[in-house]
Nucleic acid binder design. Structure first.
Lengths: 134, 134
DNA sequence: GTAGACATTCACGTTGACGTGAGAGTCCAC
DNA sequence: GTGGACTCTCACGTCAACGTGAATGTCTAC
């Protein structure tokens, strides 16, 4: 099938599909005209790419792990044992990002809480404003 | 003080300090030579900016909320009540981002688990590894 | 009066997964 | 044979907080 049909069947833009090829996640055949010719299995491959993107992997990592994965129809299964190492590193990256955001939210919560207690109580020392005179 | 001293005293690069001015978070005076002249209070202002950046706020939002905050020496306190609304919206944004990353990690965990059960068991059980749709 | 530290304003580079035209060629039904 | 849908390859734009020169001007200690 050509790129338009694959785009319709997967819900992914043609631009994104060309980008996936550029990142070597897809390798469609070419007609003499230069048109891309996709195989039936590419529909599922695109879905798997989306799953891995949703899992927070970069296209670079996906290109690395995708050839070594099988798709039993229900779940994506890493076929090579060393893949688990790569995936675990990305899991750690995700955890770090999550922790950073949790810490950021804690800071924000403290500021919001300070504002609430401020409106409940009269101000203690409302001078010392280093804020720009907007 | 000039920009170099402020940079040393805050640990923030001169480039960043100029960027903060561009984003209207700082408004130093100017000497006749064009050199920026910072006030003592700007040291604390810069620290507050860093706190708000660490809280996940954009420079645009910080420019919005900074003039309406007081600094009691220990904590940053929103002085205007409507600020809490803005900050709560950013808190929601953070929560959404956190949830997205948690969902991503769940997907990754399912894939990793599928790999482990694949190497542990000779026969796969696809229904067992079915991830919740979403 | 001069070396050299310090400052200034541009302005492009970084990161990633695409969006969005521009200009041109290809395919197919009528 | 033609018109319109389809596809192609560039190639810049997006978002954000800066990094990193380049070319140039200012301040200050000696």
């Amino acid at each position: 099938m050509r790129i338009g049909e694959l785009a319709r069947r997967t819900g992914i833009s043609e631009r994104a599909l060309r980008y996936y090829e550029e990142q070597q996640l897809l390798r469609p055949e070419r007609r003499r005209s230069g048109y891309r010719e996709y195989a039936e299995g590419d529909v599922r491959t695109v879905r798997n790419i989306r799953t891995l993107l949703a899992a927070g992997l970069s296209t670079y990592t996906i290109a690395e792990v995708l050839p070594c994965m099988t798709d039993d129809g229900d779940a994506l299964v890493p076929a090579c044992p060393e893949l688990t190492t790569v995936l675990s590193q990305d899991r750690d990256r995700l955890t770090t990002a999550i922790d950073d955001l949790l810490a950021a939210r804690d800071i924000l919560d403290a500021i919001i809480a300070a504002g609430r207690s401020e409106t409940a109580q009269p101000a203690s020392d409302p001078a010392l404003t280093a804020a720009p005179a907007g």
